[in-house]
């Protein structure tokens, strides 16, 4: 047998519609409604509350929807670099984004420069090459003197 306390718990948890009440307790709850004025009064209070909640409707916001659609459309057309930056940077926290993005962009040429310098010698030979060339020139000089 269901008591009032359990009925109150069911209504507070699942709302007024018996269809949302737990199936195994639905019949007992509905039986209690036929015998208990207190249960009927409680249900009426919650129905009034749900009716009030139903009256609280959100207004149409067409301008906001248009703006969001426009912004998101642009976001999907962003360049590959922008997407990489968007991925790397946190979107929440405007201060972090504003400070971090220029800093990251500023370091990119430095990173590229280090990489390129490491990959190409740009005509600057290492010490080993210089010694090899010097030995080659000395041997050529010796050979020229012998030839004379």
């Amino acid at each position: 047998m269901m008591n009032f306390e359990r009925f109150e718990q069911i209504v507070e948890t699942y709302g007024c519609a018996p269809a949302r009440w737990p199936e195994h307790e639905r019949n007992k709850a509905e039986q209690l409604l036929t015998t208990s004025a207190e249960a009927r009064s409680l249900l009426d209070e919650h129905r009034a509350l749900e009716s009030l909640l139903n009256d609280y409707q959100v207004p149409a916001m067409p301008q906001m929807e248009r703006r969001i659609l426009g912004t998101l459309r642009e976001a999907t057309r962003a360049s590959l670099l922008d997407r990489i930056l968007d991925w790397m940077l946190p979107r929440s926290g405007a201060l972090i984004s504003w400070a971090w993005r220029p800093a990251l962009v500023a370091t990119l040429p430095l990173v590229c420069g280090i990489y390129l310098a490491n990959y190409y010698s740009f005509g600057i030979d290492g010490a080993q090459n210089s010694w090899q060339e010097e030995l080659y020139l000395i041997s050529m000089n010796d050979y020229a003197e012998i030839s004379e």
Binding site: L52, Y56, Q57, P59, A60, M61, P62, Q63, M64
Partner: peptide, 14 residues
């Protein structure tokens, strides 16, 4: 405030 077509609290009498 965002621009809305109507106000949610304008249901007559409520």
């Amino acid at each position: 405030d965002i621009e809305t077509d109507d106000d949610p609290s304008l249901a007559p009498g409520k």
